[in-house]
């Protein structure tokens, strides 16, 4: 086991992905907010995306298991009330990974048109405000006819 530094823990936690979008890390998604080290004890602070997000339990367990596999056993994970998550917290690399995965990344509030992550067409329609998870809406591309998930802008 190497000595814990905050940077080291952040680096290890890069391996913890969102259970629903396994190509994007919890740091890129904005869920991972803080790491503090007190002697041997490591505290990790995370925030939920949507308040009812059922993945928080899985994420908490993944954080503990990932750190444990690197020899850090005294870990506690806390759900923080602040800051309130919004889609601007998703990093550019996270948005790019999301798009490559087939999910249209969130637009800024002023952009109304969602582009198809597959063919890039902006001729798309919303099928349902809620897709496979609360954070996504279901869209269909009118050009290539593929349905796709759009990660909703949330700000």
């Amino acid at each position: 086991m190497s000595t814990a530094t905050e940077a080291k823990i952040f680096e290890i936690l890069e391996a913890v992905k969102d259970p629903e979008i396994p190509v994007i890390s919890i740091r890129e998604l904005g869920i991972l907010q803080q790491v503090t080290i007190d002697g041997d004890q490591i505290s990790v602070g995370i925030i939920p995306t949507y308040s009812g997000c059922p993945a928080m339990f899985a994420i908490t367990e993944d954080i503990k298991n990932t750190l444990k596999s690197q020899g850090f056993v005294d870990v506690n994970v806390t759900l923080l009330n602040e800051p309130v998550w919004n889609t601007d917290m998703i990093t550019d690399s996270g948005k790019a990974a999301m798009k490559a995965f087939g999910i249209a990344p969130p637009q800024s509030l002023s952009e109304q048109q969602v582009s198809c992550p597959l063919c890039g067409s902006t001729d798309t329609t919303c099928i349902s405000q809620f897709g496979s998870t609360a954070c996504k809406a279901l869209y269909r591309c009118q050009s290539c006819l593929e349905p796709f998930d759009y990660f909703k802008c949330h700000a």
Binding site: Y50, S51, G52, S128, Q129, F130
Partner: peptide
């Protein structure tokens, strides 16, 4: 199906609010 998913997603949000 889509509406089934929407109803239960709203449900999850509401249960999340209850938890807070």
């Amino acid at each position: 199906l889509e509406e089934d998913v929407a109803l239960t997603n709203v449900s999850l949000d509401l249960i999340g609010h209850a938890q807070m």
